[in-house]
Each structure stands twice: as C-alpha cells, then as structure tokens.
Nucleic acid binder design. Structure first.
Lengths: 240, 240
DNA sequence: TAGATTGTTAATCGATTAACAATC
DNA sequence: TAGATTGTTAATCGATTAACAATC
C-alpha cells in the first residue's frame, strides 16, 4: 500500500482544509439525523487529529490507532462516525483524506463561511491576526468598532468599519457569522440589530449569555474563564 | 427581610470576589468527595451567576429562581450543590453571599493563586491586559518571552522576563499556574522545564494536547477553535 | 481463504429528572 | 402552625463500552 502518495504531500498547515478527495465510493451524501450534543462536541477534535495524521503523511487509520491518539475508545469513535454514515471499510479502517473531507463537510469547513469581528479590543485584534479562521475554512471579511482612530484603516488586511455601518456591510459581504468581542453591555443591542440580517450564527465572547433567538440563530456563548476556573478547582482540591 | 443590606453594597465588579461572609452556621468545611466532571464543569457557571445576583443586590435565592436564570433544572442545582455540602436552608433557599463564598472556596478563588504567562504574542498580551484573572482571584505576576525588545519591560504592570529565567522567576514569584500562549512546538519543552518547579497547573493554549504528567499536574487544554467549529456545524446543518 | 476491522446491537454506566419526606 | 424549599432517594434518560456478526 502506497503511503505518502501524491495526494498527501501538502504545502503547509493552512492549506490542509482545501484538500479535495474524490471518493471511490461515489459521492455518498452525509446523513444528518439528530446527532447528540456529546458527539457534536467531539467532531472538532476529529478534525484536529485528522489534520495531524495528514501532516504526518498517513493515508489510513483504524479506530484502534485513533483511540490511542485521542484518548477515546475505539468503540466510541465508530459510534460517533456512524452517526453520519459508514465512512470506513471493514478489514481496512478509514482512508484519512476521505474521512477528513467528510468531517470538513459535516462541520461546514468546505462551505467557506464568512465572518465579521464586532469589537476591535485586545481579543478582537488578536482574532483577526490569528490563523485560526483560515485553518477552519472561515473567511474573516470585516471588523467593526466605535473607535474613530481605527475606522477606515485596515488590520491584517481586514477593513475596520464604523458600528453605524454594521447592517449595511454585513449584507454587502454576505456575512454568515458574527464574532462578538465587545463589552457585555452591548450584546443585546447588537443581537437586535442582527435580527433583520442574513447572519446565521454568533460566536459570543461578551460574557453575557445569549439565549436562543426567534430566528433560530446558532449561538456559541464562550466563557474562556470557566476553563481557568476548572483548572483552579483541580489545583485547589490538591491543596487540601 | 432586608434586601440591599450593607453587605451587598459593593463598589465594583472587580471587588466581588473579596466578599467575606461570616457563616451563621459556623465554618462548616466543604466536603470534597469525587465530584463528577459534569458537576465541575458547571461550577464556574454558578460562580458567574452568583456574581450577577450579588451585583443586583439580591441576598436570597431559591433553586427555582436560579434554574430560570441559568437554564438548568432546580433539581440539578440542588444535586450539584449538595456534592459539597448543604449550603441552603429548607423553606428559605440559599443566602447568595454565603453560597458565593462557598463556591469561591471550592474553586480556589479565595486562595489567591499566582499565574505567569509564557509567550507574549497576541493572545498572551490580550491576557495580561484583561480583567479576567482579577475577577477570579488569580494574580498574574510575570510574563516570559524570547523577544529581546520587550524583555525587561512591563506590560500592564507585569514584568516581561527572558525564557532563560523561567524556572528561577517561577520560584521567586511562587507561581501556581502557567499559561501557555506560545506555538505548539514549544509545549513539550516547557512542560519538561516545569517538572522540577512548584507549578501545579497549566492552562494550555498551544493547540497541542498535553496529557497527564508524572507529577500529577492539573492541565486544561483549551481549543478555542473547537467552539467555532461547533457553531459552524449548527449553521452548516441548516444550509442543507 | 484468513485476518483485520468496521458497523451495529445489547449491556453497562453515569448523569439528569422527578418526587417527596425532612425541616426551617 | 402553615408554607416554602431544601436534601436525598428512586426512576428515567442518555451516553459509553463491550461484543460480535458482517464484510472487505
């Protein structure tokens, strides 16, 4: 079996998500029944570890190998993947590139979502400069702030617009995802302004939990400090 | 019942964690049996919402009220809190400040952990400038980087040291928590260097998952991009 | 064909919810 | 005392693990 074949020689990390794989099985559509939250939470993990395998030039992987890398059971991995369809082959395992392409499809990486950062503070600035989005097929297309000094300028190639132009520019750019990196006081206001737009999801770092909206917008409330606290809990436990 | 009493008039958000509450029940020690991961994950959430209640001047809360705010069931909240001891009172509910002080104890907020940021990139810089740590009783005492231009300088009042001085300064400052905000290639190397130190926990943003170490160090591997992917999954689902 | 490994069903485990007696 | 709400036990639900037949 030809390990390290043409398909696997990839230039660099950021290019990975562009890999296209012609399925030998035909273009079996992904089935999307109601997948449990526990499974959804693990999908990005598969995405990450498959990239590692691709970078290493592996073309084939079994659930046994994956379970070693990822600290899951082989059983669990098979269960998870089978929520979306039979991507493996008995006696062989999984074709790494094929599986990766399927995970990318499931996660919308191959869709090419467009995102805008609202709030050009420390976190917002760190985000537009980070390779995180490109790796995941998300295109950051605009940034918004109230600070007159940066409005009209560019940060890492991304134009900064006035908050007044929010709805207009979101429409122009066809933004799917809004990233909220402004103080929690403004969360609600912005959410209302998004109501008439075509924005489909909000990645919320304001610290104020946003509930489900009328329009069925997808919301991810991120509390990075919660993770710090969980760490502190473990340390505090030992101090007793 | 006197709502808005003296104890609840607090100057500002950052002061909240310093609230001391003299328990009318005597200083019942917190019991720390093996608490399930699911419960631990929710503790920081209780911390956050109790701060909201304190800010609002509420002195008393029932699990029914909390369950409304937090989108949990009242039953679950009672189960969770009872892992650590009976902090409530039948017929009355919970004293907000007392419960908050207990949660702070459980999470080590009242311990006053000291932290150091290793890697002065965008994220590291955003961290030292953020109020996140102070709110949680964590004191950021030092920063490390290889960049000669900032070594010896101060960022937001925090001294930046050369990576060469890592072990020495960690010892001097009595650092409990190391925050890794450098590229994944260096994760392993730093972990080895931490081995002889008194550091008890690592908040890891390198992207490289760190496993459990020999010395039983607490590790939190953060993959902020996983949350973005989960959001993309929800959006992609709707696009089909 | 024999060996390997998936896909899938059944068994187990853990976490959430419901219910109610205890008690403030 | 009567009303309210906890603490706790039992019932349900969901997620993980084990096992093995299917099949490449």
């Amino acid at each position: 079996m030809a390990e390290n074949n043409e398909r696997n020689r990839i230039a660099d990390d950021e290019e990975l998500f562009r890999i296209e794989y012609e399925s030998p099985y035909g273009d079996s559509n992904i089935s999307r029944p109601d997948v449990s939250p526990a499974v959804v939470k693990r999908l990005p993990r598969y995405f990450r570890y498959l990239r590692v395998l691709i970078r290493e030039g592996k073309t084939r992987v079994s659930t046994a190998e994956l379970s070693n890398m990822m600290n899951l059971t082989a059983s669990q991995i098979r269960q998870d993947l089978n929520c979306f369809g039979g991507f493996g082959q008995q006696g062989y395992g999984y074709n790494v590139n094929y599986l990766y392409s399927k995970i990318c499809e499931i996660l919308g990486v191959s869709f090419g979502f467009r995102a805008a950062v609202v709030g050009a503070g420390n976190l917002g600035m760190a985000f537009v400069k980070s390779p995180m989005f490109e790796k995941r097929g998300v295109d950051v297309v605009a940034m918004f702030d109230v600070n007159e000094e940066i409005i009209g300028k560019k940060v890492s190639g991304i134009s900064v617009y006035s908050m007044d132009e929010l709805e207009k520019k979101l429409e122009e750019y066809g933004v799917h995802i809004v990233i909220l990196t402004l103080p929690k006081e403004y969360a609600e206001e912005i959410m209302e302004r998004l109501d008439g737009t075509k924005v489909r999801g909000v990645w919320n770092f304001t610290g104020k939990d946003i509930g489900v909206t009328k329009k069925g917008m997808a919301i991810e409330n991120v509390h990075i400090g919660d993770s710090l606290m969980a760490l502190c809990y473990e340390i505090a436990k030992d101090f007793e």
